[in-house]
Design a protein around this nucleic acid. Structure first.
Length: 266
DNA sequence: ATGGTCGTCCCACGA
């Protein structure tokens, strides 16, 4: 079973590329982020025509996440628990079942967190929202891990986890994606017992999943690795391979992110 | 050192 994650940066603007990639990559499950549209505006029919069931948690202009699955959904939950006042559409969780058992998958769009006031980082509203959101994800993940089932937490984490995940570490030092408090919390999440699928399969440093639209970042390979699939022990036992579909960044009208995927022995 | 680019929506804002 092939499971992918891709921050598409507007599903409407990206639809031709998304359809092209779905036909080419043939994922069984695809988690999308940054749809930038409400549920009703999601291009449902075009994607259903390719054989997918679709779960959408949309929002006007910003955020928005979806899960596509060739297998039917047994269960869909919208939103990350832990703060009823949070209205941003950044988390969608679904359970799918096939003949070889069930699998829980989440599509995650972790907050960017910029701008950060360097004099008082923790008082910056967007940065404190980001850190609080990671704390909620940690708490929710603890709960999910008690189920002892195959679990894939896939998405745009907006975290540069190490110097080997960025072309130019110095340029990112104070950024919300690379600050110590960010990396520490991401490490805490991983330390719950999750396996980073791409890193488990690829020892090579400086492989990226995002290249900024600005300043020729793509041409210079000035990228960062921020899109990940984190696996529960039961899912990690099934891991065969993980790859990045880098070539899609060279397509016309590309997203600034590219798909990252895993192959599980299911 | 600065500005550079997209997407959404209509003027900046978020990334």
């Amino acid at each position: 079973m092939k499971i992918a994650t891709w921050n598409v940066n507007s599903i409407k603007a990206r639809l031709p590329n998304v359809l092209e990639w779905l036909k080419e990559a043939q994922p069984d499950i695809a988690c999308f982020q940054e749809l930038k549209c409400v549920d009703e505006a999601f291009p449902l029919t075009e994607i259903e025509e390719l054989g997918y069931n679709v779960a959408v948690h949309g929002q006007k202009t910003y955020n928005g996440v979806a899960i596509l699955s060739k297998l039917p959904f047994d269960e869909v939950v919208k939103g990350l628990p832990g703060d009823d006042s949070d209205e941003q559409a950044r988390y969608l969780e679904a359970v799918v079942s096939g003949e070889h058992g069930s699998l829980r998958v989440a599509s995650i769009y972790l907050p960017n967190g910029n701008p950060v006031d360097q004099a008082a980082p923790l008082e910056s509203p967007k940065y404190s929202y980001k850190l609080g959101w990671i704390d909620r994800l940690i708490e929710h993940t603890k709960e999910l891990l008690t189920y002892e089932e195959a679990l894939v937490l896939a998405g745009d984490y907006n975290v540069i986890a190490s110097d080997t995940d960025v072309h130019n570490p110095q340029a990112w030092r104070g950024d919300a994606l690379f600050r110590p408090q960010t990396a520490e919390r991401f490490q805490t999440l991983n330390n719950l017992g999750l396996t980073n699928a791409f890193k488990a399969c690829n020892a090579q440093p400086h492989l990226y999943s995002f290249w900024d639209y600005q300043a020729g970042a793509w041409q210079k390979d000035n990228g960062i690795l921020i899109d990940h699939l984190l696996l529960s022990p039961q899912a990690a036992d099934l891991l065969k391979t993980s790859q990045i579909d880098k070539h899609t960044r060279g397509w016309t009208k590309p997203s600034d992110h590219v798909p990252v995927w895993i192959e599980l022995e299911i």
